[in-house]
């Protein structure tokens, strides 16, 4: 199956400095929720603007659903940087403008308002909306016409905890609305970790890693364990051929798949366990490891 988005060595430079986007090759599978991660200034927005045709690439190619991007951009809905709204108009009137430009039937407005749960506020002026409501209106606008690829740039920016939770639920729901692929750029790694199926890590304009999220997180299975005598426990585990490190909490971190196997070994050797858990590496930890490697 062709990818929803493929870029090949995409490069963009502003002025004479280092490239803002440096030979970035993305591969976003269809129906994925792709977390496009990186610190502020890493080049995420610039990359997305290149994909959307808002900026021209210095070199490299972009293909959408196997076609040249210039021809296939009609299948993209987007929310870039901040929600673009006309504050003096109501939410419904804002959507109506885009609906007219896309030549869509009027019922599309109710459909997208329902998806983002904004139907009740549709007739209120956008000037009175909270930031979370504006973000949802921006997403509703991006959803008009059932785009096959939805690009959301920092959709949780500036939201309060409730707004972030609502946005997370909305992002999880979106793929259920049809054959849609979602690219969500963010610097909030923990948020992306909760919704993404795939991730790409961008650092100083370069793509450091791109992978399925479960493969990235599952690739470093470990068991976190603590006993009354850590040095002795470490010796036992090391003697049994396990690699042992110290976790951030000070416990022993054992490179192993099965906590039961570790527990059985330690108990057999007379150790009393005070803590045993499967250690799930965080996306944040992986991100920082890759940044450190790149440096």
């Amino acid at each position: 199956m062709t990818a929803a988005l493929e870029t090949h060595r995409l490069t963009k430079r502003f002025g004479k400095g280092a490239p803002a986007v440096d030979a970035v090759s993305l591969n976003v599978p269809r129906r994925a929720i792709y977390g496009f991660l990186g610190a502020n200034g890493a080049g995420k927005t610039t990359t997305l603007k290149l994909v959307l045709g808002l900026l021209r690439a210095d070199s490299g190619t972009i293909r959408l659903f196997g076609e040249d991007a210039a021809k296939a951009r009609t299948s993209i809905g987007s929310l870039i940087e901040t929600p673009s709204t006309y504050d003096h108009l109501t939410g419904r009137q804002n959507l109506d403008l885009t609906r007219i430009l896309l030549g869509l039937p009027r019922r599309e407005i109710d459909r997208v308002l329902d998806i983002v749960d904004l139907r009740g506020a549709g007739d209120e002026r956008v000037g009175g909306y909270s930031l979370g409501m504006r973000q949802r209106l921006g997403i509703a606008r991006a959803l008009l016409g059932n785009p096959r690829l939805l690009i959301l740039d920092e959709p949780t920016n500036g939201l309060d905890p409730d707004g972030i939770r609502d946005m997370r639920h909305l992002l999880r729901r979106l793929p259920e609305t049809g054959d849609v692929t979602l690219i969500v750029s963010s610097h909030l790694l923990s948020e992306v970790e909760q919704v993404a199926t795939h991730v790409g890590l961008l650092h100083r304009g370069r793509l450091l890693v791109e992978s399925r999220l479960d493969a990235l997180l599952g690739g470093i299975a470990a068991v976190e364990v603590d006993t009354g005598d850590r040095p002795r426990a470490a010796m036992i585990l090391g003697g049994a051929g396990f690699s042992v490190r110290q976790s951030e909490a000070g416990n022993l971190l054992v490179d192993a798949e099965d906590p039961a196997e570790i527990a059985a070994l330690l108990v057999r050797e007379g150790q009393s366990l005070s803590h045993l858990a499967r250690h799930r590496p965080s996306l944040e930890g992986i991100y920082h490891r890759h940044i450190a490697q790149a440096a």
Partner: peptide, 17 residues
Amino acid sequence: QMEHGSRNWNHLLTLPG
């Protein structure tokens, strides 16, 4: 300013047309 104010160009210029 209707367009500049909320960066509406980012939306308008990505629409087909």
